[in-house]
Simulated scan of single mutants.
Amino acid sequence: MPIGTKVDFNCPKSIQNHIYNMVFIEIKTTNNTSVKEDFTGYFFAFTQGELSASEQLGVRYAIALVNRRTKNIEMSSVPKLLVKAKSMNWQVSVQL
């Protein structure tokens, strides 16, 4: 959002007026001791919803990698993280 912009989140019209300036942030957290400062060794998954949101929102959708142990935070995007991935395992999760 541009600095100084105020959105009344209790007012649907205010949200509607500012929605195209908003960046939506997905937060992925870890406290695993094997995760390095640069998040090397961090294993996590993207849901189909996250992949779709990234595709639809583009630069307005960000990923925050948060290491709760070291307090390190890295901002990125789905495309950038997929490029950095050392491995990918695609799966379908089903609950009956």
Rank of each mutant, 00 (worst) to 15 (best):
L81G: 07
G58K: 10
S52T: 13
H18I: 02
L65W: 03
L51H: 04
T70N: 05
Q48E: 15
F46R: 05
A53M: 12
V59R: 15
I15L: 13
L57Y: 07
M75F: 12
L51C: 06
G58D: 12
G58E: 12
S93G: 11
M1V: 08
T70G: 04
K80L: 12
V78T: 08
T29Y: 01
I3M: 07
L82S: 08
N89A: 10
K36L: 14
S14A: 11
Y42K: 02
Q16Y: 11
H18Q: 11
M1I: 09
M88C: 14
S54D: 13
K71N: 15
V83Y: 08
F39R: 00
S34L: 12
N21C: 02
L81D: 01
L81F: 05
G41Y: 00
K36I: 05
S76M: 05
M88T: 06
T70F: 05
E50Y: 05
N67E: 11
L96H: 15
F9K: 00
F9W: 10
E37L: 09
S54W: 02
V7R: 07
K6V: 07
P79E: 11
A64N: 07
V78M: 03
T5E: 09
E74Q: 13
G58P: 07
L65G: 03
E26S: 08
V59W: 11
N31K: 00
K36F: 06
D38S: 02
N17S: 14
R60W: 04
V78R: 04
N10F: 15
A53C: 11
S76P: 06
V83D: 12
L51F: 03
S34I: 15
S87G: 12
P12N: 03
K28L: 00
Q56P: 03
T30L: 02
F46D: 04
V66P: 04
P2N: 14
I3S: 10
N89L: 13
E74D: 03
A64T: 01
G41P: 01
T40D: 01
S54V: 09
E55L: 07
T33V: 09
A64H: 10
S77I: 03
G58S: 10
H18D: 05
V83Q: 14
M88I: 14
F46H: 07
S87W: 11
M75I: 11
K36S: 10
Y42S: 06
M22G: 03
V92H: 14
Q91D: 02
E50C: 09
L96M: 14
V78D: 05
I73G: 06
I27A: 09
T5Y: 03
